[in-house]
């Protein structure tokens, strides 16, 4: 055991926190080094002196001062509570804000154009151009459709129509076996 190892164990030796083996090593070191014994006694004296140092009391004004601080704290809290608000808005602020918002909405509705909600069609042709367009034939598509016996809506699920596209589809390249 060297001096540094011994010093590391001084407090544990004094407080009796060493294992049997460690204690024997320390005592062997003490036997060989008388100044180490003196060091142990000095450290014991330091510990005893610190233990016997007088306690310190607070002053006579301490409790009064603490009482004052607590009262001030309570008063501050009650002021905050009376003006407490929701999301940072006091009741007065909330009322004023609501009035402003309603006024803005009302004014906005007042000045909004009537057809603003309807989809508007802005013609790209002038009125003259529209008037110059040729008239539609008497036989309009509507009447043609009305007279037709068949159209794409005639579809019977039970008898699917097979269409022949052979003349229309040109097979390119590979021929199927």
């Amino acid at each position: 055991m060297d001096r540094y190892q011994f010093e590391d164990l001084i407090s544990d030796y004094i407080e009796n926190n060493l294992s049997m083996n460690q204690r024997k090593q320390v005592e062997a070191y003490l036997e060989e080094n008388p100044e180490a014994k003196q060091q142990i006694e000095s450290v014991k004296q330091v510990m005893a002196s610190m233990k016997s140092m007088p306690g310190i009391s607070t002053s006579a004004e301490f409790m009064n001062n603490l009482n004052r601080h607590i009262t001030a704290e309570k008063e501050a809290k009650s002021v905050v509570k009376s003006t407490r608000s929701f999301a940072g808005y006091t009741p007065l602020m909330a009322s004023l804000s609501a009035v402003v918002v309603i006024a803005v909405v009302m004014l906005g509705l007042e000045f909004m154009p009537e057809s603003s909600n309807q989809a508007t069609f802005t013609p790209t042709m002038t009125e003259q151009q529209i008037n110059d367009l040729p008239a539609l034939p008497a036989n309009t598509n509507d009447s043609m459709l009305a007279e037709s016996d068949e159209d794409s809506t005639n579809y019977d699920e039970d008898t699917p129509v097979k269409r022949n596209f052979d003349n229309k589809i040109q097979r390119v390249g590979n021929k199927r076996p």
């Binding site: 010093e7 590391d8 001084i10 407090s11 544990d12 000095s42 450290v43 610190m50």
Partner: peptide, 11 residues
């Protein structure tokens, strides 16, 4: 360790 060192320094 700190307490031990402190006591040695005080001593």
């Amino acid at each position: 360790s700190r307490i031990n060192r402190a006591r040695l320094q005080l001593q």
